[in-house]
Simulated scan of single mutants.
Amino acid sequence: MENLKPEKVLEFIGLVNNLKHSSRRGWEQCDVKNHEQIAGHMYGMAMMTFLLGNNSTLDRLKCLQLALVHDLAESIVGDITPRDNIPEEEKHKMEDEAMKTITSCLGEEIGPYMYQLYKEYEAKETPEAQFVKDLDRFDMLFSATFYEQRDNTPGKLQEYFTSTEGKFQNTYINNLVEILKTKRKSELSNGQI
């Protein structure tokens, strides 16, 4: 850490702190009031990495790091959603450049490691990256359910459930999703939301 330039560390911290004040735009686009910020979403995912017990074959520390890095580029490019109509290839290019900028602040040891974590998450080829992607989707569905309940807007955020249908790979997370969907469906039919 002593080899890191203090000015660059402050730049990095400034970028990371942008996420505490940056909106999750999907909720904004759906007119959800008082919704989470990007850092709140990343925090929720990071906490869920503790679902991995000591007997898990997945590397819990790696999952935690992937959760904390996965949306870091949004500190520069913002939260780009499908409604923005930016081609997926262009979005990935913008985020990759942002990650290069962010990680360049962290020297020759930490920066490349953080960039490699980002690339691992994007590729979704390792079991840890696949698990964290499931956490990403699950956190979104959990939040959608919360907002529907809180705002008494039954079914308003169905598009999030539809967009993730059949995409969960981890058995445990998939079970959580099914329980969440069953609970939501019951509450919808009983008029509780």
Rank of each mutant, 00 (worst) to 15 (best):
P6A: 04
C63P: 03
K183E: 14
M48C: 03
E108P: 14
Q65R: 15
Y147L: 05
F142D: 13
G78N: 02
G111P: 10
A67M: 04
T145D: 06
D59N: 15
E128R: 03
P154W: 07
V9T: 03
S22C: 01
G107C: 04
L4R: 00
I38T: 10
Y172K: 10
S186I: 12
I86M: 07
A123M: 06
I38G: 08
Q37M: 15
E88T: 13
D134H: 07
S143Q: 13
T171I: 13
N3W: 12
G191Q: 10
A73P: 13
M94P: 00
K185I: 09
G14I: 02
C105W: 06
S23K: 08
A73C: 09
N85M: 08
Q169Y: 04
L66M: 05
D134G: 06
N170S: 12
I193F: 12
H21S: 09
C30P: 03
E109C: 10
S189H: 02
W27D: 01
N18C: 15
D139K: 08
L157H: 03
D134E: 09
K181S: 14
F142T: 13
T145A: 12
V32H: 06
L66P: 01
K181Y: 05
D59K: 07
L106G: 05
N190P: 00
A73K: 06
P112T: 09
N18D: 08
I179G: 11
G155A: 07
K133D: 11
P127H: 06
D79H: 08
A67I: 13
P112N: 09
Q192G: 01
T49N: 03
F161A: 04
Y121S: 08
N85P: 00
L58V: 11
A144T: 13
S186L: 11
K167R: 12
N152L: 10
D79A: 09
L188T: 03
E187K: 12
E74W: 00
I13M: 07
I76Q: 05
Q169K: 15
K181I: 13
S75Y: 00
Y160R: 11
N34C: 08
P6S: 07
S56T: 11
M48I: 09
D151H: 10
F161V: 05
Y118M: 07
A144K: 04
Q116H: 12
L4A: 01
P82G: 12
T81Q: 14
I173D: 02
V69Q: 01
L188N: 09
G191V: 03
I13C: 04
V16E: 05
F12Q: 01
H35L: 01
S23W: 03
N17T: 10
F138K: 05
G26Q: 05
L157Q: 01
T101E: 10
I193H: 09
V9L: 08
G191N: 09
E88C: 00
T101Q: 11
H35Q: 06
V132P: 00
H35R: 01
I102A: 08
M42D: 03
L15N: 02
E178I: 13
D151R: 00
E95H: 04
Y113L: 15
K62D: 04
F138Q: 04
I110H: 02
I86W: 01
L180F: 02
F142H: 14
L68R: 02
D71Q: 11
M1D: 10
K91T: 15
T164A: 15
E165N: 12
E90I: 14
Q29P: 00
S56Y: 07
L141Q: 07
E97Q: 12
T57W: 10
Q192I: 12
I80L: 11
L180T: 06
G111F: 04
F168S: 06
